[in-house]
């Protein structure tokens, strides 16, 4: 890893962070009462969440200009961590020992798949 790569790695992780926030926004929107099915998708929260998700894909693309594709599973792994934290922070979803061990297994699996 070169020092030139560090800002691009940061962009990559930030993009995953943004995508994870967008997931939390989608969850929040799904809990809101809407007048019909169309408004379940075309409400400000859902539309903003998808716009943020789109921006995150662009940031990932920028990041992968300097970061090798083989390192991309690191990004994927971090999304599971971010979503677990946001679930606990915003929706009171308990972080149990089971979940932490499960998360460990998922992340190890992703690393094994990447090597």
């Amino acid at each position: 890893m070169t020092t030139e790569m560090i800002p691009y790695l940061a962009i990559g992780f930030f993009s995953v962070f943004v995508a994870s926030i967008s997931q939390a926004m989608l969850k929040k929107a799904s809990g809101q009462k809407q007048k019909d099915l169309l408004h379940e998708y075309l409400n400000p929260l859902t539309v903003t969440a998808y716009a943020m998700f789109f921006c995150s894909t662009l940031m990932t693309m920028v990041s992968l200009r300097k970061v090798p594709l083989a390192m991309s599973p690191m990004y994927e792994s971090s999304s599971y961590i971010f979503v677990t934290i946001f679930g606990a922070l915003f929706f009171s979803e308990k972080i149990t020992v089971n979940k932490l061990i499960g998360l460990g297994f998922i992340l190890s699996g992703i690393v094994l798949l990447a090597i």
Partner: peptide, 24 residues
């Protein structure tokens, strides 16, 4: 083989994650 092992680890992880804990 590492890919198969990786997938198995991920599946075990998902099952553990989804299983309710004793207090739940």
């Amino acid at each position: 083989w590492t890919q198969i092992a990786g997938c198995m680890l991920a599946v075990i992880g998902v099952i553990l994650y989804v299983l309710p804990q004793r207090n739940e």
